[in-house]
Amino acid sequence: MLPVIFAIDASLGSDSLYWWGLNVIFPLGLLIFVFGAIYRISRYFLGRRVPSPALAGFGTQFKEGVSAIPTPFGAAAKRDPFIIVETIFWHIFMLGVVVIVGIHILAWNYIFGQIFSVSNPLWFLFKISTPEQFTSAYQLGLLGSNSYSHGGILNPLGAWNSAEVSTSTFDPWSFLAVLVNGTVMGLLAMAGILGYLITRIMDDVTGHKRLSSSGDYVFLILLAAIVITGLAAMYDFQIPYLGIPNQANWYGLHIALVGAFIGYVPFSKGWHMFGYYIGKGMRGYGYGRKRR
């Protein structure tokens, strides 16, 4: 391990978690994701024993795929409304956190920009993003003129100089920013994930729906940890002896967990974020989907 650490010039300083998270675990997670996704998709075809020709065209599939979206909500609304609350809290607010919270836009903008060699691919999201985390990272020095001191091979946070940040901290949300910000949305997403965890535990313990595998819990706990470390990074939760500067390590841990999550997705239920749409495409392969 040591030769590797020296070979890649790994940071062993006080903020090494940030370095490791950003430069090793996160890209490794992406790499595992790519291979995992290929493996998972190929299994649909490697595992199959008979060919199955499509029975409905793309138009039918698309129409049915879209019209089928509310069906499960309708079924659950009468008998299990809590699952809808959990789903909305988790999916909508987590998606909101990832899509409109400034620091995430910066990170993804930089990473996608590097991957596709395009300058500012997410420019259209800058103006709708919430400014809260810009400030936090800027004050910390992860953004701004001295940001490269934390940098590495990806260094999304250090990619922006203070001038760019200052032009992007325009707040389009006005008074709504009280609600539309990373903290509130993160907490609502957390409420959703805790709801999932608690109902799963309750279902398993009472025997009403004992269907969980250990992977289901790993997945939910990992998600919860990502939200917690994200909030911890923003508010710089103080935990003695964790290292100085503490906040950089929170960011590092957050990024590392996201990397682990991304790598775990193709092997877990997290795959449904893609599988859902693949499934809609599979509808045409279902029996009798060509309605008459």
């Binding site: 299994r43 649909y44 729906k209 269907l211 449904h272």
Partner: peptide, 17 residues
């Protein structure tokens, strides 16, 4: 098993709906 069946086996989220 067709690809759709394999997909179905693997993708069930066990939400219970």
């Amino acid at each position: 098993l067709s690809p759709y069946d394999v997909w179905g086996l693997q993708e069930c989220m066990r939400c219970g709906i």
